[in-house]
Design a binder for these strands. Structure first.
Lengths: 240, 240
DNA sequence: TATAAACTTTGCGCTAGCACAACCTTTGTT
DNA sequence: AACAAAGGTTGTGCTAGCGCAAAGTTTATA
């Protein structure tokens, strides 16, 4: 992970990149310049690990473009996808929650451009950049909220509802308008969806087939379009 | 919730109460005095709500003695128990994660003595008391870790394993040595355990009965003693 | 001391969704 | 063009664990 290409010397990053992103939105242009000058940029292909669970948290990251998938692997080798992170968000911020190793693995869910900084300057950021800490902890809070929601869903809902809700969340958070509905903005297999909803790829396949027949979704290999969010919401709700 | 009894005027709290508790352990006695003087103390009976999901987060809390149960209630009225908080820990720290309403409900799991402070002085604490922020975020990190672990467990394990692991965690975190094993240190019903493990009280009852026959646990109404942690650990592990 | 309320146990039948298996389709590679 | 590899579909049978039901036990209340 030390082969980071230092784009900053090639393509000088524009300050406007960060100006509107919450943790930096309160800062002066000069401060953003400073932040960018400390950053390393790297382009990742799809499906590439950015860091792994248990690695020492030497850097923290921000998605500039693309999506990150956060996952954990059980002792028995099963994957559980915890979360997707869209562009504009920090991740790998172990330091913020008092850890010195990453608590989960981060893999690119699409091609992605990622900024990163050495963890040592975290405290400097917190002290010197107003709003940075606050906004960061807001993100932590949101992630906790999502985790919590997943626990509740896993504990109380049927597979069909979990999948419906997960799919809705995906298109809400990372959806792209296409003709005929909203499409999940990165490659996503049945296997992936099953690892998000604690079921099997077979069950997902059956569900999507059924939904497609009813005109709720349209899916091709690695692509899912939600064409009737309304009815999907209804499916996700009640206990029947 | 405004009938807080101001014990502080009656029984002046001793500084040694907080001196060894992480978020305060780095502080001078005078600072702890100051903190205590701002605190409200209240004794709660068992099963009493301290705050409810969605309430404005006007105060933050610390368990001085007893246990707190954190839970969420679904639209359909089902409860999911997220977490138990033992004495010495902060809770209701919505402010720390950028919220202004409590994200879950907190109920006493036993008789409890609880300190609380108005949320407005949170920032003062963070700025003026070294180590307070860091230690607090460590707690946030640990809670995230627990949530994460629960998601993984719910997603990959069978009921028997989940219950075994949950029970082990309970006795590890809140266990009290008794003759014949380690006992969960607060009242706990089959219903409670089922709400922690996403199953039914019936299944819990059957499991405990079976385990009792095998000499793994001993349980009476509202009490559970783990007598053979070793074998329980084994049960919690493998996929069979 | 009787009665109610809360908690627990146990039995039985059913079904959601998994495991297994076979086959198909699309994409990438040589 | 042929093959391999990754991803997707669909069928069949099975079972973990739930829903329902009924009865037992302990604790609280009148």
């Amino acid at each position: 992970m030390d082969d980071h290409i230092q784009f900053k010397s090639l393509t000088r990053l524009d300050e406007s990149l960060l100006a509107h992103i919450p943790p930096f939105s309160l800062l002066e242009h000069s401060q953003i310049r400073e932040i960018l000058d400390h950053a390393t940029v790297r382009r990742y292909a799809e499906g590439v690990p950015v860091f792994c669970e248990g690695d020492p948290a030497e850097r923290f990251f921000m998605v500039l473009d693309g999506y990150i998938r956060v996952l954990r692997i059980t002792p028995c080798g099963e994957q559980v996808i915890a979360l997707h992170i869209p562009s504009g968000q920090l991740f790998g911020i172990a330091k913020a929650i008092g850890r010195d190793a990453y608590p989960a693995t981060a893999v690119t869910a699409s091609e992605a451009i990622i900024l990163s900084w050495p963890t040592q300057i975290w405290d400097y950021f917190v002290v010197n950049y107003p709003g940075f800490a606050t906004e960061t902890y807001k993100v932590v809070g949101e992630r906790m909220g999502e985790l919590n929601m997943r626990v509740v869903e896993l504990a109380t809902q049927q597979v069909e509802q979990r999948v419906a809700n997960t799919l809705l969340r995906l298109v809400n958070q990372t959806g792209r308008k296409v003709e005929g509905g909203i499409e999940v903005d990165f490659s996503i297999t049945r296997q992936d969806l099953s690892e998000m909803t604690a079921t099997t790829l077979h069950t997902i396949s059956r569900l999507l087939s059924a939904w497609e027949k009813q005109g709720l979704v349209k899916s091709r290999r690695k692509h899912i379009v939600v064409s009737d969010p309304q009815r999907l919401v209804a499916l996700g709700q009640h206990h029947a």
